[in-house]
C-alpha cells in the first residue's frame, strides 16, 4: 500500500505558487495579444478583400491544423535557423501561444459577427450609418454577447495549453511540478497537486462560463 506523504511537497509550495503565477502570466498575456491579432484576422476575413481574406484564412488553417506542441517546437528550434538569430524560450512560448490563440479567437469573433441577422446591418445602414458605425453600434454589441461562451471556453483551453511550454523549459506550473518531482521522488504527490491546482483555478471559471451562457440564452 502506497503511503501518501505531502510533507516534502509542502516544502516546495513556493515553487508551485511561482509556477502558477507564471502560468497565469502566460495565459493572460497570450490571450491579450491573441485577442488583438484575432480581431485583426477576423476583420481581414470579413473585409471582402480577396488576398487579405486568403492570407488570414491561410494563417488560421495553419495554426488550427497543426498541434500546438509541434508549433512550439518549430518556432523554438526551427524558426531561429531560418531567421539567423536565437529566440529565447520565453519569447518562443509567448509568440506561439499568442498566434495559436489568435487563430482560434478570430474564428470565435467571425462566428459571432456573421450570426447577427443581416437585417440588423440593413436597419443601421437605412438610417444612414457608415459600415464602421453599424459594426460598432449595432453588430458588435450583439455579437460580443453571443460569442462570450465560446470565448471563455477557448480561454480555458488556452490556460491548459500553457502546460506545453514546459517542454521548452519555461518555468510555469507543469515545469515546476516536474522539478518538485525530481527533488522529492514523489511523482504521485507532485502531479496530483499539479492537477488539483489546474482544477482549482479552472473549475470556477467554467462555472462562470455556464452562468454567462445561460444568461445569454435568456437574453435574446
Amino acid at each position: 500500500m502506497y503511503t501518501w506523504s505531502f510533507a516534502p511537497i509542502a516544502q516546495s509550495a513556493d515553487l508551485f505558487l511561482w509556477g502558477a503565477w507564471i502560468t497565469i502570466l502566460y495565459t493572460v498575456s497570450s490571450i491579450a495579444i491573441g485577442l488583438v491579432l484575432g480581431l485583426l484576422l477576423c476583420f481581414a476575413r470579413l473585409s471582402g478583400i480577396g488576398p487579405l481574406n486568403w492570407l488570414a484564412q491561410g494563417f488560421q488553417e495553419l495554426f488550427r491544423c497543426t498541434p500546438l506542441l509541434v508549433q512550439l517546437l518549430w518556432i523554438y528550434y526551427a524558426l531561429p535557423l531560418l531567421l539567423g538569430f536565437d529566440l529565447a524560450n520565453w519569447a518562443a512560448a509567448l509568440i506561439t501561444l499568442s498566434l495559436y490563440a489568435a487563430a482560434f479567437y478570430a474564428e470565435v469573433f467571425r462566428g459571432g459577427i456573421v450570426s447577427i441577422d443581416r437585417g440588423q446591418s440593413e436597419a443601421g445602414a437605412a438610417i444612414g450609418m457608415s459600415g464602421w458605425q453599424v459594426m460598432r453600434r449595432i453588430v458588435l454589441p450583439q455579437a460580443i454577447r453571443r460569442m462570450m461562451p465560446a470565448f471563455i471556453n477557448q480561454s480555458v483551453t488556452q490556460f491548459k495549453n500553457t502546460s506545453l511550454i514546459s517542454v521548452i523549459s519555461v518555468a510555469e506550473l507543469t515545469y515546476m511540478a516536474s522539478i518538485v518531482n525530481g527533488q522529492t521522488y514523489r511523482p504521485l504527490e507532485s502531479y496530483t497537486v499539479l492537477a488539483v491546482l489546474y482544477f482549482a483555478i479552472l473549475f470556477p471559471i467554467t462555472k462562470f462560463a455556464d452562468i454567462v451562457e445561460s444568461r445569454t440564452r435568456g437574453g435574446h
Binding site: 441577422d117 437585417g119 440588423q120 440593413e122 436597419a123 443601421g124 437605412a126 449595432i138 450583439q142 435574446h220
Partner: peptide
C-alpha cells in the same frame, strides 16, 4: 422593413 429589424 418587413421584419422590423429593431436593435434588440
Amino acid at each position: 422593413f418587413q421584419h422590423f429589424n429593431l436593435f434588440p
